[in-house]
Design a protein around this nucleic acid. Structure first.
Lengths: 151, 151
DNA sequence: TTACATTAAGGTCAGAGAACGTCAAACGAA
DNA sequence: TTCGTTTGACGTTCTCTGACCTTAATGTAA
């Protein structure tokens, strides 16, 4: 117990109780805990994943940082249930749309938001052969923007 | 974290909220921020590209200048332009995110909406091998829902 | 007027520096 | 042994600078 990773986790979570976002510099934090900088990455990947309710963003280069964002679990409980229990490895378009109308009913998303997501899930947005990521992404974004322009 | 490029970007964008055109002298701006003149070019090429919604014109020699023009578009027009002119057959994550910040700056999307779209464009959402549509869609929807729970 | 020189801009590019990321190997407690 | 932890070497990305280049306006002498 009381190993380094746990200490760093505790330290960060204490900060995250104050505010929903914490921004640190990797080298700073590492020197504060007298460890290798890569230890910070280890803590991020083992303790601050979306499954744990956090999202980690970072930027390299001068002025770089690591930012941890605490997800709103209570408010997002339905969302987390969907993410972690209802959506498996695969998802059909119909099932996806069904979830969207569920989210709409519960007023967890606005109509605009639902239409954005529907666009991203459209068969036409995702079916590509060969499906290189950049091509798919272009199609997806176009679809989402077109969906927006209907409102 | 207080890097120069971000400061200069913020300074210029504040000016660009007042008027749609800003004209500066490179050396002036550089000395105002205590940096090398070429730093200004760096800011231009990384933050004020057409994808970000800006056009930069300049002239050398005596009386030279750098002029930044904010592309001013109505809502429908902006979306239409993005879809039909800025997004080609392929789209990198970087360019996609730049467009999202363009949409946010112009208040054409809310932060929630932008974060949904960012999620759909994430490399992790789209890079799958082999990328059958149903698998991609599952990843994409998970990502979008997680994005929602940040608000 | 022409031609050339000077001065006053901005442009480009390579390289250094500043962060963060990855991964395999070593370590260590249960 | 096993599995989570920890480190260090090496990689990638973003920022920033300085030397050198190009272009435009102006001044000057023939």
């Amino acid at each position: 117990m009381a190993n380094l990773a746990d200490d760093i986790e505790a330290f960060l979570k204490r900060l995250l109780r104050e505010s929903s976002t914490v921004e640190i510099q990797r080298a700073m934090l590492a020197s504060k805990f007298n460890c290798a900088p890569s230890q910070i990455n280890y803590v991020m990947t083992t303790r601050f994943t979306p499954v744990h309710g956090y999202v980690v963003e970072s930027r390299r280069g001068g002025g770089g940082y690591i930012r941890i964002v605490r997800l709103n679990m209570e408010k997002g409980e339905a969302l987390h249930t969907l993410v972690h229990q209802r959506i498996g490895q695969r998802l059909t378009q119909e099932d996806g749309y069904a979830m969207l109308s569920f989210l709409l009913e519960r007023k967890l998303v606005t109509e605009r938001e639902a239409s954005i997501m529907a666009a991203a899930l459209m068969q036409e947005s995702l079916a590509m052969d060969p499906p290189y990521a950049e091509r798919i992404r272009a199609t997806v974004l176009k679809a989402m923007l077109l969906a927006l322009s209907r409102h």
